[in-house]
Design a binder for these strands. Structure first.
Length: 228
DNA sequence: GCGACAG
DNA sequence: ATCTTGTCGC
């Protein structure tokens, strides 16, 4: 229950079904002072992963610190089971943060997942922290193309159930897909991401986290915690 | 059975 | 996920 490396897909599926019963996706007033971005980086064919979390002031979106952790993963990348590969390292990076952000945006989906337990929801339930997902590609569900103007959005549907939003972060550019993780509601997830848009398609939390872990993988940064 | 398939 | 330069389009 602590090491995911030897799990079978059947066992992983059972864990997702169990975690699903504990997710809290109710909308609520969010008072955000700090927001985090989480991502991992790796070399092709390597079992070593570089996980990182960057913390930004909100709503200014200025980096205030980060946490980096190098780890080994045995669990392969299997669509629908990304959490079993990346969450352990992200949790280690999370625990290392001296001050936790109010909401963590993770690269990947929240409940926009076949069993409503994508990496962001999984991480949130496991740590008890508010989290949401922001992915570059759809995993499951369908959506109508949002208007071409920045800020446009449309719901991601799984039958009649809404599981997220397709959000246009840049005019005439492919949308990003956001969804609640834990302790963040559907509308909350959209409101948060709207306030995280900088000059690029990828919202600042995950964009900066991606940049961070890549520099870490290339040995330009050291493992551990650092303030900006 | 067939196609789809986060990072 | 990662490897990479130029090039098309607004």
């Amino acid at each position: 229950m602590d090491n995911y490396d030897t799990l079978t897909i059947t066992e992983a599926t059972a864990i997702q079904k169990d975690l699903r019963q504990r997710v809290d996706t109710a909308d609520r007033p969010l008072a955000i002072r700090l927001i985090g971005g989480a991502d991992i980086s790796l070399n092709l064919y390597s079992t070593t992963i570089y996980a990182g979390i960057i913390v930004l002031s909100f709503p200014e979106l200025r980096p205030v610190g980060w946490s980096l952790v190098q780890a080994e993963t045995r669990f392969p990348y299997v669509p629908g089971y990304l959490a079993f590969r990346e969450v352990p390292a992200l949790v280690a990076a999370w625990k290392q943060l001296p001050e936790k952000p109010d909401v963590l945006v993770i690269d990947g989906h929240g409940i926009a997942h076949p069993r409503r337990m994508g990496i962001a929801a999984h991480f949130g339930v496991e740590t008890g922290q508010a989290s949401m997902g922001c992915a570059k590609k759809l995993l499951t569900g369908s959506y109508q193309e949002p208007g071409l103007a920045v800020g446009s959005y449309s719901p991601i549907l799984a039958g009649t159930e809404q599981i997220g939003y397709a959000f246009r972060s840049k005019t005439k550019v492919a949308p990003v897909f956001v969804s609640p993780g834990h302790r963040v509601g559907m509308d909350n997830s959209l409101a948060v991401i709207r306030q995280c848009v900088g000059r690029y398609r990828i919202p600042e939390p995950t964009r900066l986290a991606h940049e961070l872990v890549n520099r870490f993988r290339r040995s330009e940064l050291a493992e551990g915690w650092s303030a900006c």
